Amino acid sequence: MLTISNARRGGLMVALGLVAVLAGSPAVHAEAEFEKAPIPEHLKGMHLSGRALELVAGRIDPSRPLGYCDPANQQPEIRVIVPNLRNGKGNLRLSLHSDDPSEWVGKKKGGKLIRFDVPAVAGRMEVCMPLPYGNGTYAVGIYHDENADGKYGFTSEGYGFSNNAKAGLFGPASHKDAAFKTHATRTDVKIDLRY
């Protein structure tokens, strides 16, 4: 007879919930359909999408790596700092969400404002994302897509949320726990990946 301790049962429920949200739920499949929206011509070939992409397209320089943090930037942006990528395989996928909890990870078709897939670098990474609506309240979800298949592998790939919010029992962290306010030109958002 198989018995699972409460701690392991909780971890299993979190893992199963994240699979449903990040890899296989209807909401995620609906988002995948939304991601087929047109990408501005000058950004084709870059790995990005999102419903607010057209609002920031002019602020993304295709001659620089996606997520480049330009020290001369004068427009509101966030700098996502991830200190603990365990290797340089695959991509780091970052999704920027608005202040609306109903548009948080897995909640609504096309809920993300912007999504970047940036080649992973072992150790510390910094990725800048322009803010489509200027300073305000946002939330970020990330995962280390080590095999670069665009799907979250719950048994092997790390994930994280802004404010280092913890995943819920059956899915992602709550929007309330992950939401943060931006200020000035650049707001730093540190996210530790959980593998």
Rank of each mutant, 00 (worst) to 15 (best):
V21L: 10
F116K: 07
G88W: 05
Q74E: 12
Y133S: 07
F116A: 02
P71W: 03
L169W: 14
K89M: 11
I114K: 05
Y195P: 03
S156M: 01
R79N: 09
E31D: 15
K190D: 11
N84W: 10
K89V: 01
G110Q: 05
F170C: 01
A167P: 07
G158E: 07
G136N: 10
E31I: 07
E103F: 06
P101N: 10
L43A: 03
E77R: 15
I60Y: 10
L53Q: 06
L193D: 03
N84R: 08
R86G: 09
Y133E: 13
H29R: 13
E103I: 01
A27L: 02
N87D: 15
L94R: 11
P71N: 12
D145T: 10
E41R: 14
G110E: 08
F180G: 03
A72I: 00
F116S: 08
R115I: 09
G11D: 14
G24N: 11
P26K: 03
G11F: 06
G11Y: 09
V56K: 04
M125I: 08
A148C: 00
E157H: 04
A52S: 14
A184F: 11
I39N: 00
L22E: 12
H183G: 10
L85W: 12
N164F: 09
A7Q: 14
S156T: 15
V140D: 12
R51N: 14
L92E: 02
V80I: 15
H42R: 15
P132Q: 10
K112D: 04
I60L: 08
D117E: 12
L55E: 08
V118S: 03
E126M: 08
D177Y: 01
P119E: 04
V19F: 14
R51A: 09
G11W: 07
N135K: 13
T182M: 11
A173S: 13
G90T: 07
H144C: 12
G67Q: 01
